[in-house]
Structures are given as C-alpha cells and as structure tokens.
Computed example of a mutant assay.
Amino acid sequence: MKQRCSLGLCAALLSVSALAADSYQLDTIASDLHYPWALAPLADGSFLVTERTGQLKKLSASGETLFSIQPALPELYVAAQGGLLDMLLLPDFAASGRLLLSYSCGTQAANSTCLASATLRADQLADIQPLFQAKPLRRGAAHYGGRMVLLPDNTVLLTLGDGFDYREQAQNKANHLGKIVRLQLDGAAPTNNPFVNEPATAPEIYTLGHRNVQGIVFDSLNQQVYSHEHGPRGGDELNLLRAGSNYGWPVATQGIDYTGARISPYTEFSGMTNPLYVWTPSIAPSGMALYQHQRYPQWQGNVFITALAGKRLHRLELVEGQVVAEHIMLAELDSRLRDVRSGPDGAVYVLTDSAQGKLLRVTPP
C-alpha cells in the first residue's frame, strides 16, 4: 500500500476530481459571523458557533443570532491565530448544558493553549472551570492546535501545536508542544496513557511529532482516530493516530521552510509513523468531519476537510484506512474555509473564515 503520497505523486493511484457547483446544493444559513472557528449543529436544527475573537453564539435554523456570549475565560488571549477556538459538547449536553472550550491563554510574551469546562444555561455560560494548560508557555501567537474529540471511554483528545518557533520541541516528551494529549473530563491524565509511567515525560501525551493539528475525528465504526495537520510549504498530512506513536515533525516531513530552506533531509524516519496522505503544495487544512449518517449513502464513511489557503472543501473516500479518491468542492466560493461538521439532519455544514464569515449548508443535488 502507498503510505506517503501527494496530489502529484498519487495521480496514478487514486482519483482526484474537482466537482462542478451543480454536483451539490449550497445554501447560505448566516453571513454575519466574525472569524468563526468552530461549529456544533444541535438536534433542534440550531447551531453553536465560536468566534476566534471571543464570542460564543447560538444561531437559529434559519441563521438568526439567538444570543451572543463573551465567555469569561481565564486569561483569554486574542491575537493572530489565537483566541477562542474549539468547543466539545459532552454526551449529556442536551440535559446539562456541559461543554468544553479550548482557547489561547496568557500574554504575547507567555501564552499557551488552555482547556476549560463550562455550563450553557439559557443564554448564559456559567461554572467556567480551568482544566488544563499546555506547558511550557511560549512567545508569539501561532500554532495552538486546539481541536478536540471525545473517545468512547469519555476521555478527550486535545490537539496542540508546536508554537511555530519551537518546532524541535515536538520531539521532546517532557512538554506538550507539538503533541496530542489525552485527558479525563476533569483535565487529569488517564492512568493508561502511553507514557504515563515514563520518567521526565508529560503524562498527558497521547501522540507526538506534530506541527499544528487543526482537525481530528473518531471513526466509531472502525474504532479509529484520524487527524490532519499543517505542514510548512507542502507536507500537510492526514494521519491515522495510534497511542504512543511519533508522527515525525520536524525530523521527517515532505515540506520545506517558508524561506525555501530544507527542514530535514528525511521524508520518513525509522520508528516514526508515515502519514496516510500528504498535500503538496499545502492546502492549510483546518476543520474535519467524518460522515456517518444514512441520509446520503454516497458520502457514508467519507472524510470532509476544509482548507484555508487552498479555499476548498476536500471530500476523501477511504477504503480500509487508505485514501482512494479525493473530490474538490466549493472552489467557486474562493473563500477560506475554517470548519466542517455533519449535522443531525445529514447535511454537511461549513464555516468560512473572515470578518464576515458565513455558515453554509452542503447537500447532494
């Protein structure tokens, strides 16, 4: 099986197609969002949306803003790529209103990725409790990660970036930079994490060797976790996650530095896990959704990925954990796309990334 490929190298191995706009139906639900970052479609047809600038909004099924909250998150730091990031609705959310929020915290000189729990009651966010802060603190305002997914055992995977200027730390198991961590709902490290008994190692680490992971999903049918991450110039990756695995950054990469310099002579390295799929040139993957709904069987099991620099929605067909076809959608919008989620109605919902961000609904024609 081909383990590493780019759009150019894989042309003979899989189908890559650009879908015409008439091959799907596109509807605009809302068009007045301010740099939206994460989306949660609710069972009643409404939506929760985070805006990177610090707002949590609820929209009606028709896109009307029902309320807008500025959560009192401890030391929320809004700058460049930082701010209010992802949200994760806990299994009892419908009854309890419990959710998790990831965000950047601190100051320009010393900041990090933080996680907090809260309770949504009517149009208020209460009981905000800090749960976790990635260590060490760093300068700048880039590469926070921040995406979350809930596993069947009620632990949470939280993605963390390498801080941009600290890429070598992605291989240092003493800290959280360039890692994916696994946490209990109270923020503690589970006792069965892969490195929990290893000396001088952060016990929360689940996987390491990442650059900036901004998409993660759990495949409930196959009990697998997929993530994607930003490469530098080239080398964006789709990965199948295994506890304790090292995904190579910056030792092994198909990307080069923004200056054009070579980051590493290695595209793969012994003991490090190769990605399932690589995009070169970069698409800048952001959100990610795994479609597991019966309404549109032609999408069943497909992975949807939004792209920022690439300004596309990528639909990947997977067979036995391998990408066999890629379909390019929404190119006609020429818009940066931030997040994608599958709704309870079977539609796919997409957020655009701008000061006048949109919530879009995508369905087959």
Rank of each mutant, 00 (worst) to 15 (best):
M1P: 12
C5V: 08
L9P: 00
A11D: 07
L13Y: 12
S15R: 15
S17P: 00
A20M: 03
D27L: 10
A30D: 02
A40Y: 03
P41W: 07
A43Y: 02
A43H: 11
G45E: 11
T50G: 03
E51G: 01
K57W: 00
K58Y: 03
L59K: 08
T65H: 10
T65R: 12
S68H: 08
I69C: 06
G82D: 09
G82S: 13
L85A: 12
L85M: 15
D86I: 05
D86E: 13
L90H: 05
P91I: 04
D92F: 04
T107I: 09
Q108E: 14
N111M: 08
L115E: 05
L115W: 06
R121P: 00
A122P: 00
I128G: 00
L131F: 11
F132S: 02
G140S: 10
Y144F: 15
Y144L: 07
G145L: 03
M148H: 02
V149P: 01
L151F: 04
D153C: 08
T155E: 02
V156N: 04
V156Y: 08
F164E: 13
R167A: 08
E168K: 13
Q169M: 14
N175P: 02
H176M: 03
H176R: 09
A189T: 02
N192R: 05
F195N: 04
T207G: 04
G215R: 09
V225L: 10
V225Q: 04
H228K: 06
E229I: 11
P232Q: 14
G235T: 08
G235C: 12
G235Y: 02
L238F: 13
L240I: 11
A243Y: 08
Q254A: 11
G255H: 06
Y258C: 07
A261D: 15
P265G: 09
Y266I: 01
T267A: 11
T267D: 09
E268F: 07
S270T: 14
G271I: 06
M272F: 11
P275K: 05
Y277D: 02
W279S: 00
P281S: 10
P285N: 05
S286V: 07
S286C: 12
A289I: 04
Y296K: 06
I305Q: 06
T306E: 03
A307R: 02
L308R: 08
L308W: 02
R312V: 13
E317L: 10
E317Q: 14
E317N: 11
V319L: 12
V324H: 05
A325N: 06
H327L: 04
I328P: 00
M329V: 00
A331G: 13
D334S: 13
D334E: 15
D334G: 07
S335Q: 15
R336I: 01
R338G: 05
D339C: 06
V340C: 03
V340G: 03
R341C: 01
S342Q: 14
R361K: 15
